[in-house]
């Protein structure tokens, strides 16, 4: 048993020298030749090194107990990220960067070239490459081998591999659409990680614990930046939530409509009335309701 540890230690030592560019290749060759076990041990060190480097971001998230830390709380999130950092023994105090929007969009540019368009009424907390999102955002992330960004939203952890993608996060649902590249999605309630590739969209509903993946609607990522919202077979509740965020006023929905789905495009620019358009397209009624409107089954008063 001790012999094996010595071999592993030597292999690690050789790898450190290789990585540092200071290795004596002839001496390394002789060590590899000395014992078949040496070569096998080094093989594993080099391979695990490469794998861990490439998956570093995804691995950085604490897996099993994480759903306790990354709960959807208002005040809990920052404390949770600090707690996680303390558990990992980070020698420095993390710098938390918070962006929160009201009625307008915020464009966020990070030093590494990442660009984030934060939608109205949304909140992004950032600690280095770890982020927590409430609301919607479009991400443009340049690829950096060995560095991954991890975004927590609605109970899911999304790790990017250098991509363009959009997250729409509500307390109990999340929509993720990828335009370029691919992202990995994990979560406490997912049996296994899901990889979402360009042209695919994911819908996660925490309540019924349902996750579905389908073809993305072309041009849908960040469509709200262009004055329209496009859907294909989207649960009506999500459309209504988007209208509230991006449209002129609050929209609510009668519970009886929860199973309805909508396909189509709604114009949300100034001068349009998307809730009225939606009601017409779906044959529903729209009534004033407090500070906004409410969608109802047709014929109701």
């Amino acid at each position: 048993m001790n012999d094996n540890l010595a071999t592993e230690q030597a292999a690690l030592d050789w790898q450190a020298q290789v990585q540092a560019g200071s290795v004596d290749w002839d001496a390394f060759t002789r060590w590899l030749e000395a014992d078949r076990d040496h070569a096998d041990a080094y093989d594993a060190v080099a391979l695990s090194d490469a794998l861990m480097a490439d998956h570093r971001g995804a691995l950085a998230t604490v897996s099993q107990p994480s759903h306790r830390f990354w709960a959807w709380g208002t005040s809990g999130v920052l404390a949770a990220s600090l707690a996680v950092a303390a558990w990992l023994g980070a020698p420095h105090a993390p710098a938390i960067d918070i962006h929160e929007t009201q009625a307008s969009v915020e464009q966020i540019a990070l030093a590494d070239g990442t660009h984030i368009a934060l939608a109205p009424h949304s909140r992004l907390e950032r600690d280095g490459t770890a982020m927590v999102l409430r609301g919607d955002a479009v991400f443009d992330v340049p690829h950096r081998p060995g560095r991954e960004m991890v975004i927590t939203a609605a109970g899911l952890k999304i790790s990017d591999i250098g991509t363009r993608f959009e997250i729409r996060a509500a307390p109990d649902t999340a929509r993720l659409t990828v335009t370029e590249g691919e992202v990995a999605v994990t979560g406490a309630s997912l049996a296994q990680p899901v990889m979402l590739v360009a042209g695919r969209a994911l819908l996660y509903e925490a309540g019924p614990a349902r996750l579905s993946v389908a073809a993305a609607v072309p041009g849908a990522v960040g469509d709200w930046q262009s004055g329209h919202l496009t859907y294909r077979d989207a649960p009506l509740g999500l459309v209504v939530a988007d209208l509230t965020r991006y449209g002129p006023q609050q929209v609510r929905m009668d519970a009886a409509l929860a199973t309805r789905r909508f396909s189509g495009t709604l114009l949300i620019d100034h001068g349009h009335a998307p809730a009225r358009d939606l009601a017409q397209l779906m044959g529903l009624a729209l009534r004033p309701d407090g500070d906004g409107d409410r969608l109802l089954p047709a014929g109701q008063r």
Partner: peptide, 25 residues
């Protein structure tokens, strides 16, 4: 655990491979 993964016929090999590597790790 009702989940529906991305269609493997469409997903490039690398995407699935990365997912499997991560799970292995």
């Amino acid at each position: 655990h009702p989940e529906e993964r991305a269609d493997p016929a469409i997903a490039p090999d690398d995407a699935l491979a990365l997912q499997q590597e991560l799970t292995l790790l």
